[in-house]
Computed example of a mutant assay.
Amino acid sequence: MKIWIDFINTPQVSFFEPFIKKLENEGHEFILTCRDSSNTVDLLKQKGWSHTIIGDRVEKSLLKKLFAFPIRVLNLIKFIKITKPDVAIGQSSFYLPLASKVVGVNSIYTNDNEHALGNIPSFLFASNIFLPENLSISKAIKQGASKKKIKQYPGIKEGVYLWEKGMEIQEARKNTSQKKIYIRPEPQTAQYYSGKENFMDDLIIDLKDIYEIIILTRDVTQRKHYLESKFDGIYVPEKPLDFKSIATDCLIFIGAGGSMTREMALMGIPTISVYQGELLDVDKYLIEQDLMVHKPDLNRGYFEDFLTNSKNSKKNQGVLLEKGKEAFELFKHTILTLK
């Protein structure tokens, strides 16, 4: 079977990695396309996966996004008419369901962000819609999803690809002294993000002479900002760091939204979300499970109290990792029976 995956952002590389590894071992072939955005291309190269770049980075402007959308869809249609996949699956790729529909390829569309406007065309054209169990189906239906197409999978998206790594990372953390503070800034160009930019600057400057801080930037523009002289002493990696190395030596993770924040929470790492907009249902769920706290106005005082009092919630983490395994098998079964 030839399976088409379209990557439009970095978290999707991690999401699909276990599927690609396991299904390739079973003799299936993958056709990979990507948009040249964030660190996506760098990550695909790190994995050694053959891929075709179709489309450039899209700016935050809704008008620019609307203009770029049909152009990339048309280019994808041309590509998959040549490569002829049997099935298609995309995690928040708003382009894949429409392109698949045009050429008559069955597709799976999955997303855990109920605020994404791209859900509207994706829900309409996808053959199957996968949503996490903690995302309200009524919200998807309001965006045009047919209830007949929807399947809800156990746990959260991050569990689908981290269930195998979870215990390994926990063991590694037992034998490592955690000293580093990792910070993931806001998704500045994302359509769903309407908060402030660079709002953590004062906090970072306040902490940098006391703690070892690593800023995990999302793109070149963000990296350039954190390389300014006022942030001297902070490490800003040029290339994406290995997930295991981050999770193993992370003392506290501060994230302004996105998959990486949920990944660290799922690993049982003390995690503070400073997301400025309305929280997703999945984020609210992690907070309810005591795996994450939300503090959009984070300051040094709260940070140091959290550092003193934070504890891993391993019981809830273990449940979510088990659910992740169940969700992985559900996705895999659907992919193989979709043709």
Rank of each mutant, 00 (worst) to 15 (best):
K22H: 12
L207S: 06
P97A: 12
K84H: 08
A265E: 01
K22D: 14
L117H: 05
Y211I: 09
I156P: 02
E304F: 01
R262H: 14
K45V: 08
T189K: 14
Y192I: 13
I269R: 01
L162Y: 07
I129N: 01
A327C: 08
S245G: 13
V41I: 11
P296K: 05
R223L: 10
M292A: 09
K180W: 02
N299G: 09
A190V: 09
Y193K: 03
W4M: 01
L227E: 14
Y211M: 09
N312E: 14
M267K: 09
G48P: 02
T52K: 14
E322S: 10
T33R: 06
K157P: 03
L266P: 02
Q222L: 02
E329P: 00
D249T: 06
L320K: 03
L286H: 05
T189C: 10
R184G: 02
H115L: 13
V13E: 02
S229Y: 10
I210C: 13
I120Y: 06
Q276S: 11
Y161R: 03
L74I: 10
K179Q: 09
S92F: 06
K311W: 00
P185K: 02
D209M: 05
D290G: 03
S136T: 09
Q188C: 14
A190S: 13
S177R: 15
A145K: 05
F199N: 11
I129S: 00
L338G: 07
Y275V: 12
E326Y: 10
I169V: 11
D209H: 14
F199T: 09
F16L: 06
T308D: 13
T271S: 12
D283R: 04
S245M: 12
Y161C: 06
Q276V: 11
T261E: 13
T308I: 08
L279R: 04
V236W: 06
N119K: 02
K208M: 11
I287M: 02
Q289K: 15
L251C: 09
G48L: 06
N106R: 13
R72Q: 11
K196I: 01
F79S: 13
Y153I: 07
L43D: 02
S310H: 12
G159H: 06
F16D: 07
K64T: 07
K239W: 01
V105C: 00
F16W: 05
V58Q: 10
Y193H: 09
E326M: 09
W4D: 03
S37V: 15
E197A: 12
G277Y: 09
K78N: 15
A172Y: 07
L251K: 15
L291G: 03
V73L: 06
K149D: 00
K339N: 15
M264Q: 11
I183E: 00
T217Y: 09
I215L: 05
G27H: 05
Q191F: 14
Q191C: 07
I205N: 06
R184L: 04
T33A: 04
Y192L: 12
T83S: 15
K60L: 07
Q46K: 14
G257D: 05
